[in-house]
Design a protein around this nucleic acid. Structure first.
Length: 189
DNA sequence: AGCACGATGCTCT
DNA sequence: GAGCATCGTGCTT
């Protein structure tokens, strides 16, 4: 029996949510077809004090969803071509989110492979390409089946199987934020 | 297998 | 006008 992660799952410390999203199942209904992948990598972005977080300079049109209630998708466009998927965390008014950085396809792998031209789904923009995620999903609720995207309970990943490291791509972010070990990955054996 | 680089356009200053 | 939570290619080992 399948359980969609409830809004209360996201209404918690972002680091906990990021760790626990590993092993869970990201589901996307695309053209009526169910696609899904196990989340294998995620990063935490934690509030206005975190100078790596988009919310550092306050609320803007782009990051507004992060300031809202938890459990919603924050989808933004970057590098002129890529969409990034985040899950908003913590309480309304505290801007924080988890960036989903990689999935391991488990349903609709044929469709996913076509969409990726046979290439992998390890990378934040790669998985949005694979699942057809774009700005139209910014603000979509992740805790119910209504929006065509949600996250289901998966399997628990033991602490020993989680790799922690600094977040990727924060070239101009000052320390200590640049080096905070807020990237979580499932160890590949 | 790894590194360097160009692409490309939106957002915020 | 600068910068960007990246990707794919092409070149080097």
């Amino acid at each position: 029996m399948v359980k969609i992660l409830p809004q209360s799952f996201y209404s918690r410390p972002t680091l906990s949510v990021a760790r626990e999203l590993l092993g869970s199942r990201l589901v996307r209904i695309l053209d009526g077809v169910r696609l899904a992948g196990i989340i294998t990598e995620a990063e935490a972005y934690v509030g206005q004090d975190d100078l790596g977080c988009h919310a550092k300079a306050g609320r803007t049109k782009r990051n507004a969803v992060m300031f809202g209630p938890p459990g919603y998708a924050y989808v933004y466009f970057t590098y002129g071509q890529h969409w990034m998927l985040n899950a908003v965390t913590e309480n309304e008014g505290f801007p924080a989110a988890v960036l989903i950085r990689a999935i391991d396809p488990v349903e609709g792998a044929d469709v996913i492979s076509l969409r990726r031209h046979g290439r992998d789904t390890i990378g934040p923009a790669k998985l949005t390409m694979a699942l057809g995620i774009n700005g139209g999903l910014n603000g979509a609720g992740l805790f119910g089946p209504g929006s065509g995207i949600w996250i289901e309970e998966g399997f628990a990943v033991s602490a020993g199987d989680i790799i922690t490291s600094p977040r990727v791509g924060l070239y101009t972010v000052p320390e200590p934020w640049k080096s905070m070990p807020w990237r979580f990955q499932i160890l590949r054996r």
